[in-house]
Structure formats: C-alpha cells, structure tokens
C-alpha cells in the first residue's frame, strides 16, 4: 500500500531548531492519497511546528519535504499552497470585517467571477453556512467562524488539507456535523488533522501518528495506538 505513487507527501529528516531546542527532530513522515490522518501528542509536542514546516510558514533547519514526488523544501508558502496544500489555523483566522462570501471568495484564486459565485455557494452549502452568506464574518458565532475557516480550506480544493485543531471550542452537535463533513470530503481530499479530542480522532482517522518532544513515537491504526505503552506513558507522564 505504501508504494511510491500512492504517497502524497513525505518528509526526510525534517528538523526545526528554536534557539537550540529541537521542536521538530529528524522526522520521516508519509501520508497517502485520500487518507485521513490524525496527528496527536501532548501540548508542546511540536505538532503545529511540524505542519507549519510542511506548508512553509516556518523554514526548516534541516531535512526535505516532498509533495506529489516534488521536493518543495525551498518553495515559498504561496507556491506550496497553489500546488495543493491547504491549511486552516488553530486560532480562528478569518477576515472578520468581510462577509462570509467574501471570505470564501478570497480562497478562490484565479477564478472567473461566475465560477467563484457557484463554488462559494456550493462550499457554503456543504458546511451549512449558506443562510449566512452575506453576514459580516466577525458577527458569526464561534462555531460558525470555525466552519467558515474550514469552508475556506475546502474551497481551495487542496490535495492535502491540514486542519489544526478544528473542533476546539465546538459544541457536541457541531462536532458530530464536523465528523460527517470530513468523512464526506475525504473522498477527494487527503486530510491531516491535529486533534485533541480523542473521540473525533478514533471515529474518523484511518491512521494515527503520535508526536512527543518533536519526534514520532508511534504510528499505526487506532487499536495499535490505543494499546501502545509508549503512547500511554507520553500522555500520562512517568
């Protein structure tokens, strides 16, 4: 299954030093097409740093990133994005002074006006924000803002969508809808999900990678991770 043309993204010895501290240390990571992968680990494990290295928000100290077989390590963020990497922020990061539709339209680069319109309503239909299309996004509820953030990620039509703690602060109902939504889009998109909510992880992830002190300490399907003593130790402490 891990044959080379099935791999969407992989890293070689990816490392990031912050003033002597190895936030990400020598990571070799692979993710396949149309997979839903969860990236978990205790606070400060280096999850956000790791995905930031993938999309180029931070420059790596060492190592390489390959996307669709191409070495993207030295490419700037906007090129990586246009190659098909989407990223949604941990902290709600939308354009608060613009309307919902303007927000989503901004995610659509190089599209004609009519095309934009139809994609915007299609995406907003999908996440269930179509009623609020003309509302100022700053006036939305927190849950709806998270959905808008997700909608912008989907609208980009990325090959790989990186979601940084998308369910943080959502209600149970919103989380259920979110899970369904991710299942739906995973038919066409590979999802890399940083998530603290284990219920979400266990119910949608195909495979789980555990990060601790900047290193991958375990990787595998749900059962093997749940049983893994190293993981339990990392979470529960010594």
């Amino acid at each position: 299954m891990d044959s080379l043309n099935n791999i969407l993204l992989y890293t070689e010895n990816l490392t990031k030093n912050f003033q002597g501290i190895k936030a990400v240390n020598d990571i070799n990571f692979k993710i396949n097409h149309n997979e839903i992968r969860a990236l978990i680990g205790p606070n400060g494990a280096g999850k956000t740093t790791f995905v930031s290295l993938l999309c180029g928000r931070i420059k790596a100290s060492k190592g390489k990133v390959f996307f669709n077989g191409v070495n993207i390590s030295h490419l700037p963020v906007y090129t990586r994005i246009s190659m098909g990497i989407g990223y949604t922020f941990q902290i709600t990061s939308i354009f608060f002074n613009l309307t919902v539709s303007e927000n989503v339209a901004l995610a659509l680069k190089n599209k004609r006006q009519e095309e934009k319109k139809s994609i915007v309503s299609e995406v907003l239909n999908k996440v269930g924000l179509i009623d609020r299309i003309n509302q100022r996004s700053g006036d939305l509820s927190y849950g709806h803002q998270r959905l808008l953030e997700l909608a912008m990620g989907i609208a980009q039509r990325p090959k790989l969508l990186i979601l940084d703690e998308p369910t943080q602060g959502l209600s149970d109902l919103e989380i259920e809808n979110f899970k369904k939504l991710i299942k739906k889009i995973s038919a066409t998109v590979t999802v890399l999900l940083i998530e603290h909510n284990m219920d979400v992880v266990m119910s949608i992830a195909d495979k789980i990678t555990v990060l601790h002190f900047g290193e991958i300490i375990a990787e595998g399907d749900k059962k093997s991770i749940q049983r893994n003593p190293v993981v339990q130790k990392a979470y529960l402490g010594d």
């Binding site: 999309c55 700037p76 994005i81 608060f96 303007e102």
Partner: peptide, 21 residues
C-alpha cells in the same frame, strides 16, 4: 483590491490562502 484588504485584515491568512503577500 480585495486581496489588499485581506492583507490589511490578516496578512498571515492571506499568505495561507496562497497569495504572494
């Protein structure tokens, strides 16, 4: 112009939407 406003409002987000800020 919309991209300019997006940069004003949140340049980090504009970058992550793939604009060469």
């Amino acid at each position: 112009g919309r991209v300019l406003v997006a940069i004003r409002e949140n340049s980090d987000r504009a970058l992550m939407l793939g604009y060469n800020v």
